[in-house]
């Protein structure tokens, strides 16, 4: 992770992170003092393809 930050420093930029999904990644970066914005996200229906399909069909019917 330290090498990762060095890469951005060498490129002349400050590392700022938007983290999507796994919160532990954001927590690790925060512990290193890296500015991080965590976005809580998980695949619809926990990744179950059949329930995701049903959700999509119901949403299509309801126009949402």
């Amino acid at each position: 992770m330290a090498d990762f930050r060095d890469l951005f420093t060498r490129l002349g930029g400050e590392i700022r992170v938007i983290n999507l999904g796994l919160e532990s990644f954001a927590e690790t970066l925060e512990a290193m003092g890296v500015p991080v914005l965590h976005v809580q996200w998980s695949p619809p229906a926990g990744g179950d393809p059949e329930r995701a399909r049903l959700l999509s069909l119901l949403d299509d019917e309801d126009g949402s």
């Binding site: 329930r51 049903l54 959700l55 069909l57 119901l58 019917e61």
Partner: peptide, 15 residues
Amino acid sequence: FEQALEALARARGLA
């Protein structure tokens, strides 16, 4: 809620 979702879809002929 998962059971209810499937029942709602069946009630509308989607499953």
